[in-house]
């Protein structure tokens, strides 16, 4: 029960942070962090994937509603929510019984970095390709993906570092 409340609060917090603060950053005109996908990283790993797919859909839809982008964020967020389990199995090499006790905080930095970096890059690549909606200006998509991913990851690791210090 405690965990559900925590997840709901995290959902609302990340949504408001993204919409009211981060969507206005536009560093150098186009580099923008999309920190709301941290919700997908932090959502507890389970064999049953329906809850995460539904929450990812809702999260994407809310971001889309605020930024007038149709269903672009929904598509990208759903995609990483679905393939998350595959990368999780490959990188952390856990079995089904470990899922309950798993926490990103107790893993080594390089594994966590690989996991988050891959998902972030995939998400941003889909996001910017759909925003572009054509093959014209494709280098722009790649540059945007790279810079925004770096920005997102930087913010995520800074944030997790600060909150970890506080909690322990």
């Amino acid at each position: 029960m405690n965990r559900t409340i925590y997840l709901i609060l995290l959902f609302v917090f990340l949504l408001l942070l993204q919409v009211l603060v981060l969507n206005n950053i536009l560093f150098l005109g186009y580099v923008n962090p999309y920190i709301y996908i941290v919700f997908i990283f932090l959502y507890p790993i389970k064999e049953n994937r329906f809850p995460i797919l539904i929450t990812a859909f809702l999260l994407g839809l809310s971001i889309d509603a605020f930024s007038n982008s149709g269903g672009i964020h929904t598509f990208a967020t759903l995609f990483i929510a679905y393939i998350r389990l595959f990368f999780f199995k490959v990188i952390f090499k856990k079995t089904t019984t470990d899922y309950q006790l798993f926490n990103l905080r107790h893993e080594s930095f390089d594994k966590v970095f690989n996991y988050t970096a891959i998902l972030t890059l995939i998400h941003h690549f889909i996001l910017f390709s759909l925003t572009n909606f054509s093959f014209y200006n494709f280098t722009n998509v790649l540059i945007n993906t790279l810079f925004s991913s770096v920005f997102t990851l930087l913010l995520y690791f800074l944030g997790s570092f600060i909150f970890r210090k506080k909690l322990t």
């Binding site: 797919l53 859909f57 149709g70 269903g71 929904t74 598509f75 759909l130």
Partner: peptide, 20 residues
């Protein structure tokens, strides 16, 4: 799971096309 995922993605694509 895959079918459910596909179903939600189709909704997202419909929204994108609608918006475009």
């Amino acid at each position: 799971f895959f079918l459910f995922f596909l179903f939600l993605e189709i909704i997202a694509v419909a929204l994108i096309i609608n918006n475009h």
